Amino acid sequence: MLDDRARMEAAKKEKVEQILAEFQLQEEDLKKVMRRMQKEMDRGLRLETHEEASVKMLPTYVRSTPEGSEVGDFLSLDLGGTNFRVMLVKVGEGEEGQWSVKTKHQMYSIPEDAMTGTAEMLFDYISECISDFLDKHQMKHKKLPLGFTFSFPVRHEDIDKGILLNWTKGFKASGAEGNNVVGLLRDAIKRRGDFEMDVVAMVNDTVATMISCYYEDHQCEVGMIVGTGCNACYMEEMQNVELVEGDEGRMCVNTEWGAFGDSGELDEFLLEYDRLVDESSANPGQQLYEKLIGGKYMGELVRLVLLRLVDENLLFHGEASEQLRTRGAFETRFVSQVESDTGDRKQIYNILSTLGLRPSTTDCDIVRRACESVSTRAAHMCSAGLAGVINRMRESRSEDVMRITVGVDGSVYKLHPSFKERFHASVRRLTPSCEITFIESEEGSGRGAALVSAVACKKACMLGQ
């Protein structure tokens, strides 16, 4: 009897593995994704193909990295998701002549009506938060230079001027797309009239992360975010950046690689679950690469896999709870928690219980395998993109072996128990001629924006502006 049951459990697990095998990517698959990513990057950089390229390769006008001589107080704003952060950054000489960066910050959550109302409502709310922060720190009387981390696709015309191309991540505030974001912020500050600010720089969160990590390690020339969304930036040779005049030196390019796949480059790798996630998203047909990796989508992918296993009578005796059938019910943090389970399955059992399920031991094991399959594919897909960037940098610099540091931020990278190990191992397999160091950014977005502002202020002083 026991043997029969054991055989049935083994057969069930084997069927589960057959279904989950769809998520496995072979090294040849990853090399294919990497080569296609490089081709799209090239198209994004070139003037004649930029418009139709899915990977936009947006110039950021960040050319210099901090040298350690900029000092002063800077205000930093960070808008990239449902939370908005205001930070005071003091850049100065530390002990023994070292450079020191001290920060104080406060988080504000953005109400739904500000995210989806008008641009005026959104930026009025942001300036209200700045006003509140300055009151708390008794700094209303000071006109501070301000660095703005704005983590949406922007076409820069200068370091302090950028046109919002399109909202992502659930934002829909009308009247912002096609307009200068810094102008919208300046107008809102003017409307309030109770404080003055000098907006000197606007950067993407990947750029802010790279600059913040450069402060720790001067070989950091790539910034990457794996959180709600997924994106990367890197220092490109100016001669390859056709959208900006000049051939000397390097400029940081914001790849906006989340949109890779929007022209069909990933079609052969998309599964039924991916198509369902895409169809029910706020932007169907867009940001397809990001939807395979980002935390906004990972939990939902797992939920759809679990429903398939229920329908195949391989999980929960073929019956799903009402909660499990509800879109968004299986949160991405559950994926991390399930994979963090120590082996007694308590954590998995508790999560499934909150979803109205009474799982068996085998159910718990199957749910864990589903989570591992989805998150491992995410790590491997992400590795193909980064390997594409790094191999490109090595080739354009004609280096036999390139040493490089990548600064990384984002909740999936930082909080998932195995993502970074799987990701690092896969990147290294795909970049055999590179020695890569990964560092995690601390308060990256805010500190990085302030350091970019410090560079901009120093330049302005040198130019006598």
Rank of each mutant, 00 (worst) to 15 (best):
R85L: 10
D311G: 10
E93K: 13
S445D: 12
S453Y: 10
F330V: 09
K15F: 15
S131E: 07
R429L: 15
K142Y: 08
Q18L: 13
S131T: 07
M87N: 10
T437M: 10
Q239D: 09
S375V: 09
G295W: 14
N180S: 13
R345G: 06
M41W: 01
L357F: 05
A379E: 02
D113V: 08
R422Q: 15
Q106L: 04
D158S: 10
P284F: 14
L315M: 13
E237W: 02
F23S: 12
C252A: 04
D113M: 11
L88G: 03
N166Y: 07
Y61R: 01
L88Y: 10
S76I: 02
S69P: 09
L314E: 04
S426Y: 08
G117F: 07
G68M: 03
N166L: 12
V86M: 03
G285L: 12
G68A: 06
K102Q: 12
W99G: 06
G162Q: 12
G444C: 10
G294N: 05
H105L: 06
G229L: 15
V207F: 01
D205H: 12
A201T: 02
V389L: 12
F148A: 13
V389G: 01
V154H: 11
L164Y: 13
N231A: 06
F316A: 05
V86Q: 04
D400N: 03
K90M: 03
T431H: 11
S441T: 03
L270W: 03
T118M: 04
S411I: 14
G162I: 11
S131V: 12
D124L: 05
I189Q: 15
Y349M: 03
T149G: 13
T65D: 14
N180E: 15
S411G: 10
G193D: 07
A370R: 00
L292S: 14
V241Y: 01
S418Y: 07
S281V: 13
Y125I: 14
R303I: 01
G464V: 11
S426H: 04
S151W: 15
R85D: 11
G68Y: 03
L75I: 02
Q26T: 14
E268Y: 05
G385S: 14
E9N: 15
G92D: 07
I126M: 07
R428T: 10
T206H: 01
D247I: 05
E300V: 00
I225P: 00
G94N: 06
S375C: 07
D3W: 07
D78S: 12
Y289H: 15
D158N: 15
A10W: 11
A379Y: 04
K296V: 13
G261M: 10
Y273A: 06
M41A: 01
K172F: 06
L144R: 05
T209C: 03
A454I: 11
V222W: 00
L271R: 02
C382Q: 03
E67F: 11
S441I: 02
S445V: 12
L386R: 00
D132T: 13
S69Q: 07
A53R: 14
N240H: 01
M381I: 12
V207T: 09
D247E: 02
V200F: 05
A11F: 12
L463K: 14
F133P: 00
I211N: 01
P284W: 11
G117D: 13
R429V: 14
H218T: 08
E421A: 11
L165V: 09
R325A: 10
K102R: 04
I163Q: 15
D274Y: 05
R5P: 08
M107E: 06
S280V: 10
M202V: 02
D365M: 11
A6L: 09
A378G: 11
E70I: 02
S131Y: 05
P111C: 09
K169M: 14
V406P: 00
G258R: 15
E157S: 15
C457M: 12
T431S: 09
E339C: 02
L315H: 03
K13R: 08
V55N: 08
G162C: 12
G44S: 05
A10K: 13
L25F: 13
E319Q: 15
S426R: 06
L415C: 08
E372F: 08
V226A: 04
G328C: 15
T228P: 11
E96V: 08
I348W: 04
I293N: 07
V310N: 01
M34H: 05
V406A: 05
E339I: 01
D409C: 09
G44A: 06
K414W: 08
L430M: 06
K458G: 13
K15T: 10
T326K: 09
D247K: 01
T103A: 13
E216Q: 06
A454L: 14
E95L: 11
M235F: 01
A201F: 01
R46I: 12
E395S: 14
K32W: 05
C252G: 03
S426Q: 14
R325M: 09
E237K: 05
G446R: 13
I110G: 06
K459Q: 14
E237D: 12
A449E: 07
V200P: 02
C457L: 13
D274E: 12
I126S: 03
I159P: 13
Y234L: 03
K414V: 09
T209A: 06
W99L: 11
I404G: 05
M197G: 01
V427I: 11
L451K: 10
F330N: 06
A460K: 12
K13V: 14
L79T: 03
M381E: 00
G97S: 09
V55E: 01
Q347T: 08
A329C: 15
F84E: 00
T332I: 11
A188Q: 02
T342K: 01
M115N: 08
S174F: 03
G162A: 08
N204K: 13
G193A: 07
G410A: 05
L314N: 08
E51A: 12
M202H: 02
S280F: 13
Q287H: 12
A456R: 03
M139T: 06
F133E: 06
V338S: 00
V367S: 04
S64R: 15
E245P: 00
L271Y: 02
S396C: 10
D42W: 13
R428H: 10
H137P: 02
F23N: 01
M34D: 03
T342S: 03
I110L: 11
P417R: 07
V62S: 02
L164G: 13
D132V: 06
T118E: 14
L451H: 13
Y289W: 15
D198F: 00
N240K: 02
R186N: 02
A259H: 14
V55S: 02
C382R: 02
M87G: 08
N254E: 04
K140I: 03
G44I: 00
L292K: 07
P145C: 11
K459M: 15
N283R: 10
L386F: 11
A232Y: 03
S127E: 05
Y215A: 00
N391P: 02
I436H: 10
G299F: 04
Q18S: 14
K142W: 12
L355P: 06
C233I: 00
P66N: 05
G261C: 06
G183I: 08
I404T: 13
E248D: 06
